[in-house]
Computed example of a mutant assay.
Amino acid sequence: MGDPAVIRIFDTTLRDGEQSPGATMTTEEKIQVAEQLVRLNVDIIEAGFPAASPGDLEAVQQIARRTRGVAIAGLARADISDIDAVWEAIRDADQPVIHVVLATSGIHLTHKLKLGYEEALQRVQAMVAYAHSLCPTVEFSAEDATRSEWDYLCRVFEAAIKSGATTINVPDTVGYTMPHEYEALFRYLREHIPGIEDVVMSAHCHDDLGMATANTLAAIKGGARQVEVTINGLGERAGNTAVEEVVMALRTRPDYYGNVYTRINTQELLAASQLVSRLTGIPVQPNKAVVGQNAFAHEAGIHQDGMLKNRMTYEIMTPQS
C-alpha cells in the first residue's frame, strides 16, 4: 500500500478535465500539460480515454512514451476492447496503470447499462482480472459509488481486489454526497471489505454542490490515500476537485489531517494553473482559492493595515508557498 502518511495525487486534467465543454486540447498541448504535471510532481497522470478515438489513443501513447518518473493511467470501461486500447496506449510508460470503471448504482445499472446486480459483479471480476493479466497495476472505479447500496459496493470492491485491483476508487460521480457521509462511507468500506488493507483507497469528487474539495478532504480523514483531482478544478458540469486546494489545505492544516502530506512541488501550482487556462481558453475566476488573481489581494483598509504590520493577520499561506 505504501507510506500511509503520503497522499498520492492522481491528476485527471487530461481525461476528466478535458471533458469540460470547450476544453479540448491537441496532442502537443496535452504533452505540454503532462510535462508541467511532471514538474508539479504528481504521482499519476490519467492521460486520457484511449478507446474514445484514435486521436485520444495516440495522445495517451505519446505521453506514455515521452514522460518519465511518473505513472501513466488510461481509462477503460469494463470491456475487453477498451482495456486493450488502454494497454496499447500505456504499455511503454515507466509505470503503466489500467483504470477500469463500471457503475454500481441502481439507477446506472438499470437505466444506462441494462445490467442486473449479479451480472455487473461478474463483469467486474472478469474485466479486472483481464486488465491484471496485462498490467500489474490496476485501478477499479465504481462509478456513482455514493448513490450505490453500501453492502453491494462492498461485494463489488471485494471481487475487484480478489481479481487483481491494486487501487479501489470510490467516486462521487455527480457531486451528490456530503463530507460526513463520504468519510463514513470510506470508514464503512475499510471495516467491511476483506483485503482492503492491501490496496489503496482513492477519492474522486465532483463539484455539483460545491463540495468537491471538502468531500475529498473528508475522504482522507476516512482513510483515502489517493485523491483524483484536476488543475483549476476543471471538469464536466461544475468541475472536479481542484488539486491546488487539496494540496494547500493539507499543507496549511497538517494538525487537522494527521500530518499526511503530498509530494507536490507547490511552487509549480500557479504555472500549472496558468498553462491549463491558456491552452483550454477557460479563465480562472479572480477569487479562485490559491491560484486566483485576487487570492492574495487586499482591498479593505483594515486588512491592508494588518498586512503591513504582520502578513499572518490576513493570510494563512504565502504566495511563495
Rank of each mutant, 00 (worst) to 15 (best):
A297D: 12
L185K: 01
A289H: 06
R66C: 12
T213N: 05
R8N: 15
T146A: 01
R39K: 15
A142Q: 03
I98G: 10
D94S: 10
F186D: 00
Q274Y: 12
E191A: 14
I302K: 10
F296K: 00
L234K: 02
M248Y: 06
V42R: 03
K112D: 13
A120Q: 01
G223P: 04
M178E: 14
Q274P: 05
S321H: 11
I44M: 01
M25Y: 04
G258E: 06
T13I: 02
G48P: 07
R123F: 10
V227M: 01
G281V: 01
T166E: 09
A64G: 03
E46L: 06
P319R: 08
A93E: 00
D82P: 01
N41I: 05
A214D: 05
E88H: 08
A76D: 00
M1H: 14
Q95H: 14
S105C: 04
L75V: 09
S105Y: 02
V227T: 09
T110V: 13
A214M: 07
A238F: 09
A76C: 06
E88T: 12
G239A: 04
S202A: 11
I302A: 14
M201G: 06
A23E: 08
V128E: 05
I264M: 01
D94V: 13
N310F: 15
K162T: 05
Q36P: 00
G175I: 11
D16Y: 15
E181P: 15
H204M: 04
K162Y: 11
D43C: 06
A5C: 05
Y261W: 10
E315L: 11
A224N: 01
A297S: 13
R68T: 15
P50R: 06
T262Q: 08
V6Q: 04
Q32V: 06
N294Q: 12
T167Y: 14
S105A: 03
D3K: 00
V38A: 14
E181Y: 15
Y176N: 11
H180P: 11
V70N: 10
G17T: 03
D79R: 13
V33Q: 08
M178L: 14
G116W: 02
T313S: 15
Y182K: 00
R278N: 09
T173E: 03
Q19I: 07
P96T: 12
N259L: 07
N287P: 03
R65D: 15
D56C: 05
T167S: 13
I98Y: 04
N294T: 15
L115C: 05
E181S: 15
P286S: 04
V247G: 02
S273Q: 11
M201C: 07
V200H: 11
V100P: 07
R253M: 12
M248D: 01
Y261N: 03
S321R: 10
R39W: 10
R8C: 14
I302G: 06
W87G: 11
A52D: 02
T110A: 14
A165N: 08
E158D: 15
V276A: 13
A214G: 06
I31D: 04
E139S: 13
R311C: 14
Q36F: 02
I193W: 01
H303G: 08
R278T: 12
P136M: 01
E268C: 14
S53L: 02
F49N: 01
E191M: 09
R91A: 15
N310V: 13
R15G: 10
Y117D: 08
D84E: 10
H303W: 08
A218D: 02
L113S: 09
V247Y: 00
A52T: 12
Q122W: 07
V247Q: 01
Q125E: 14
E28H: 11
T173F: 13
D208F: 11
A34L: 06
P254H: 12
